[in-house]
């Protein structure tokens, strides 16, 4: 596993796209956070508002994670990977562990950095910007967990779909459109807080409620912050296991 991890690390950092992706993530998280929080000398700035850019950073990271597997299919290097390491589960696991780890670090750096940037630059906040409660830490460092789980989900989807365009489409439309549009169906509306992304984002929502972008805030029922994270994690693991199964079922 150590060797397999080293292999994936060499593969990842020997192309340019991860550096660009990581740069874009920091830019999006910090830029958007500052742009929204610093309005009116930062009077509206709160811990939650400092994370306005974090969902976009997380989605960018999911794209990056999906690309680590889909580009292997795109350029055929997946066969080289399996020739060098015939235990396919090991290849997928190493890729996933590496990306989940990088996700956790990136999520922490981006969201913490975003918070401290806002804290430094917001001259006149109504409430002093501080990480004082567990909920404050959850709203910021919770993204560390979301990035990591997002990587597992994205690699699962990428392995199932095997091509970049399809995987990225699925990974963006699912949280942004599918979970939103289901709210329009009245019979299904009450279950939308339990959908994976809404549930997962409860973990970084103020009060542990409201889903992604606060869009389920008007629905009273829903998972708690911790329950939401578990729903997101279980979804990601199920898809990842399906991907692992397909890796053995299908020819490389």
């Amino acid at each position: 596993m150590v060797a397999a991890l080293a292999v994936e690390r060499i593969k990842l950092f020997s192309t340019k796209s991860p550096y660009w992706c990581l740069g874009v993530i920091l830019l999006a998280v910090w830029g958007l956070g500052l742009a929204v929080a610093l309005v009116d000398n930062g009077r509206e700035a709160t811990v939650f508002v400092s994370q306005t850019g974090s969902p976009m950073g997380m989605m960018t990271f999911m794209v990056m994670a999906a690309l680590t597997i889909t580009t292997e299919y795109r350029f055929g290097t997946i066969r080289n990977s399996f020739l060098a390491v015939p235990q396919r589960a090991l290849v997928l696991a190493a890729k996933t562990v590496l990306m989940a780890f990088i996700g956790a670090v990136t999520g922490a750096v981006a969201s913490l950095g975003g918070f401290f940037l806002v804290k430094a630059l917001a001259t006149d906040p109504d409430v002093p910007l501080q990480l004082s409660s567990a909920a404050d830490y959850r709203m910021v460092l919770g993204y560390s967990a979301l990035y990591a789980i997002g990587a597992v989900l994205a690699i699962g989807v990428g392995t199932l779909v095997r091509q970049s365009a399809g995987a990225i489409t699925a990974l963006l439309l699912w949280p942004l459109l599918v979970e939103t549009l289901l709210m329009l169906i009245s019979g299904l509306r009450d279950m939308t807080p339990y959908l994976p992304f809404n549930a997962g984002f409860n973990f970084v929502a103020a009060g542990g409620h409201g889903g992604m972008f606060g869009r389920t805030a008007f629905i009273a029922e829903g998972p708690s912050a911790q329950q939401g994270l578990v729903i997101f994690l279980v979804t990601a693991l199920v898809i990842w296991l399906l991907a692992l199964l397909s890796l053995y079922q299908r020819d490389a």
């Binding site: 397999a4 292999v7 060499i10 020997s14 060098a84």
Partner: peptide, 27 residues
Amino acid sequence: GSLLDANWVHPNRTARAHLRWMARANG
């Protein structure tokens, strides 16, 4: 050792990096 398709390389990866990860996988 096998060469099934010479195009199975990532276009942005250097030749040395391409071989380096394969080498690492096999100690």
